[in-house]
Amino acid sequence: MLYSEIVMDHFMNPRNVGTLDDADGIGEVGNAKCGDIMRIYLKIDNDTITDVKFETFGCGSAIASSSMATEMIKGKPLADALTLTNKAVAEALDGLPAHKLHCSVLAEEAIKDAIKNYYDTHNIEYDPAQFKESGHSHEH
């Protein structure tokens, strides 16, 4: 099989799909041209992610990594969420095929983008070096 059982589980039964009307931060990465887009909605209270939802246009790997990544940051402090790497997401999924790894980088980047959006919209100071430009073009 192309994908592990965990990937298939998260793809077939994705966790945290949807939107948050009162989101504190919204992030989006990818573009339809390259075939994967992930948008993430965060509810933040006291520097902690109290709720998270995602919407993804993309392949099985992109949807599964979106689902897994949201599970990994839900209820966590922002500082922890900022250290989430796509490698950790891929490992939690029991690995992804090599040519599919690029589809999973979206999760890490979308989360960072949403946190940055939260800081920006709430006038919170931060170190911009945390959000170094990634390979994916941002489209807001």
Binding site: M8, F11, M12, G35, D36, F57, G58, C59, G60, A62, I63
Partner: peptide, 14 residues
């Protein structure tokens, strides 16, 4: 419009 083919194929395979 609005969807990606691989996820479509996986769900159809299921």
């Amino acid at each position: 419009e609005g969807i990606e083919g691989e996820s479509l194929l996986l769900l159809l395979d299921a």
